[in-house]
């Protein structure tokens, strides 16, 4: 697969930071608006798919290292389990930061309200952890499927 025309490359070069920014926005605002770890991670991974389509996969393969993505995925899953273990004083997955006044600890106004980012306790942290895991996992899947077909053409 060769790289696509100059128009496609330029537009994807402009759009890629916005795709990444929108994905992280969805991850961080998961407790206020529709979104969360899974959706934001999937959008960031689709940014990588955009790069693979626009530029060639052999060129993306040189930039994005599989070891880095594997490390991000494992650390995201470990962060998620660690956050769940931190509340082990009450139960596993206990939300010990909600309404406590520390980070993400403001108490929310009940009923319909405009929303405050500094609420919800461990939920945004868990959302970030799951977002890291999902973005790295889906990126590894996309990269492996693209590179795997490339290796097959060479060997046969």
């Amino acid at each position: 697969m060769r790289e696509m025309s100059r128009i496609v490359r330029t537009v994807s070069h402009i759009m890629f930071p916005f795709v990444i920014m929108f994905g992280f926005y969805l991850v961080v605002h998961g407790h206020l608006t529709p979104g969360g770890g899974f959706q934001g991670g999937a959008i960031i991974a689709s940014g990588l798919a955009l790069l693979i389509v626009a530029y060639s996969r052999s060129r993306v393969k040189k930039v994005v290292k599989k070891e880095v993505l594997t490390t991000i995925e494992s650390s995201g899953l470990l962060m998620f389990i660690g956050l769940a273990f931190l509340g082990i004083g009450a139960t596993f997955f206990y939300n010990f930061l909600a309404n406590s006044g520390i980070i993400f600890g403001d108490s929310v106004a009940y009923g319909i309200n405009p929303g405050n980012l500094n609420t919800a306790g461990t939920l945004p942290l868990m959302s970030i952890a799951v977002g890291l895991e999902v973005l790295a996992g889906l990126s590894i899947i996309i990269l492996m499927l693209a590179i795997g077909s490339l290796a097959g053409e060479g060997s046969r």
Binding site: T33, G121, L123
Partner: peptide
């Protein structure tokens, strides 16, 4: 939980 989004909570 202090979250506005019930699905996330």
């Amino acid at each position: 939980t202090g979250a506005n989004n019930v699905v996330t909570s």
